[in-house]
């Protein structure tokens, strides 16, 4: 199966963006909301929050938000409440080469007004140093919004910023190129049951030897007999059974679950032993 690039990268592309931007005309009249929400998830606070009815009514809670840009004032109420932090307020109505972008920002610390920060693309890549022109500092449910002054031609490309004073963060690929040859094959077999120290190799050997249930594997390996009662290993063992083509059906037995379902000492039990039932 193949998916849209967006579903693999989380990065909105021209196709997605073409569905959420106003017309040239509408852009000139004032600030507007860009809602970068391209997946139907059960979520509707934005539409409920808009006092101008600028977000079209939802068919159900999973609907995609669509903005009526004739009604949108760019008030940013929706941007402050969006759980996905997917709403940006763009203003390119003022004359000149610069506009503003208000974006949700939930990191510490907040920047200061007038501070120069590095504007970032959707991928987090550096674009250019820009100026912070406003901050709404709201703790609690509402998310602080930071306003950046940006060149008009970059308003739809910039979606974040970082502090310039921070060290350059090494990109993933620069990490340790030389160590690509890590000798994975010689490492010890993974631990499946932490309590009893049972390895994946032991589990696979038992499956190969004909142990086809969680319970049989438990009897012979002790996996699942420790204090955690199989909470770590059971799912891995069931996964291994499925990988071996054994437990594909819905009625694959999960193995036994024994009381007591928590740690309790003999002393506690004896104290509580009022046989008054």
């Amino acid at each position: 199966m193949s998916y849209d690039k967006f579903e693999q990268t989380g990065l909105a592309g021209p196709h997605e963006m073409s569905t959420c931007l106003p017309s040239e005309e509408q852009r000139k009249k004032g600030p507007y909301a860009v809602i970068e929400c391209f997946e139907e998830i059960p979520c509707n606070p934005c539409v409920m929050s808009c006092t101008f009815d600028a977000i079209l009514p939802f068919e159900d809670v999973n609907s995609l938000p669509l903005v009526d840009f004739d009604k949108c004032t760019g008030c940013a109420v929706c941007a402050g409440i969006c759980p996905g932090l997917a709403i940006f307020i763009v203003d390119e109505s003022k004359p000149g080469d610069f506009g503003t972008l208000r974006l949700p920002y939930e990191y510490w610390p907040l920047p200061e007004k007038g501070q120069t920060v590095m504007a970032l693309s959707r991928e987090g890549g550096d674009v250019e140093p820009v100026e912070v022109v406003a901050i709404s500092n709201v703790k609690g449910a509402r998310t602080p919004l930071v306003t950046l002054r940006l060149p008009k031609d970059k308003l739809q490309d910039i979606r974040g910023f970082r502090f310039l004073s921070e060290e350059e963060q090494a990109a993933l690929k620069d990490d340790t190129e030389a160590e690509k040859t890590a000798d994975i094959e010689s490492l010890e077999s993974p631990i499946v049951c932490r309590c009893e120290g049972v390895t994946l190799a032991e589990i696979r050997d038992l499956i190969a030897a004909g142990c086809h249930t969680v319970e049989e594997i438990k009897h012979l390996s002790r996996a699942g007999m420790g204090p955690c009662q199989g909470r770590t290993c059971r799912q891995i063992i069931m996964g291994e059974l499925m990988r071996a083509g054994i437990g594909k059906t819905e009625d694959m037995p999960p193995g036994s679950f024994r009381p007591p379902g928590g740690t309790v000492t003999l002393g506690q039990l004896a104290e509580g032993g009022d046989s008054d039932a």
Partner: peptide, 9 residues
């Protein structure tokens, strides 16, 4: 994907 976009940024 809104979460994904957020951390990509």
């Amino acid at each position: 994907l809104v979460h994904a976009s957020k951390i990509r940024r």
